[in-house]
């Protein structure tokens, strides 16, 4: 989880004004360098562990940011602004995926298997078949959360943001973030009651 903690620190930091690149292109390249790892990681969590889709979504989010960068007026931190773009792109991707799955279902075509089955992570505790099954259930539980609860759970518990930082990114009141977090945890604990089994 060191990477997640590092990402939280990066998000919390503000680029010093003196270090700001001069041209929009330089500013964009700096944004990519600073945010690419966190962007892919966040998209990965939000998409339930689909690495390929996470990279695609992150690429699209960066492209959108590139086109919108000239209009960025600094009302929020650049990383916060970009995180919003990324989360919107994730929502767009999931909406398209939903439509695609329904369209395929109409023709009796089974959708693609879960990404974790297609491309299981090699170095995690989910390397055995039994744990992979649990991992798929975790994925379903995470993706089954309402969008607001899922965002809050991922940002706070997987990305390591504070409630205040999460509230800023999602433009919500801190009390709303806490409420989402409470409900998300309650639901996940109910659905993944046997999670302790994966511990070594």
């Amino acid at each position: 989880m060191a990477n997640e903690r590092k990402g939280a620190v990066e998000l919390a930091s503000t680029l010093p004004t003196t270090d700001l690149p001069t041209s929009p292109r330089q500013q964009f390249e700096r944004l990519v360098t600073d945010e690419r790892e966190r962007a892919v990681r966040l998209a990965y969590h939000m998409l339930g562990g689909d690495r390929a889709a996470a990279e695609d979504v992150a690429q699209e989010a960066f492209l959108r940011a590139y086109h919108a960068l000239p209009a960025f007026r600094g009302a929020a931190r650049l990383s916060t602004w970009f995180t919003r773009i990324l989360l919107n792109q994730v929502a767009t991707h999931r909406r398209r995926q939903w439509v695609r799955d329904r369209f395929l279902a109409l023709w009796g075509v089974a959708g693609a298997p879960p990404a974790l089955i297609r491309d299981p992570p090699p170095t995690t505790a989910a390397s055995s078949l039994r744990d992979l099954g649990l991992r798929v259930r975790m994925q379903r539980a995470l993706l089954g959360l309402p969008q607001g609860q899922q965002r809050v759970f991922v940002l706070v518990h997987l990305e390591g943001l504070t409630v205040a930082q999460t509230a800023e990114v999602l433009e919500l009141a801190p009390g709303t973030v806490k409420s989402h977090l409470h409900r998300a945890l309650k639901r996940l604990r109910l659905e993944l009651d046997d999670l302790r089994e994966v511990e070594p």
Binding site: A58, P121, M138, R189, L195
Partner: peptide, 26 residues
């Protein structure tokens, strides 16, 4: 529960090579 969830979910690998390839593609 959150600790167990994180352990079971595992880290997201993003090697320097993957990062470079990502930037080049972008």
């Amino acid at each position: 529960f959150v600790d167990r969830f994180r352990k079971a979910w595992g880290p997201v690998e993003f090697s320097p090579r993957a990062a470079t390839a990502f930037s080049a593609r972008l």
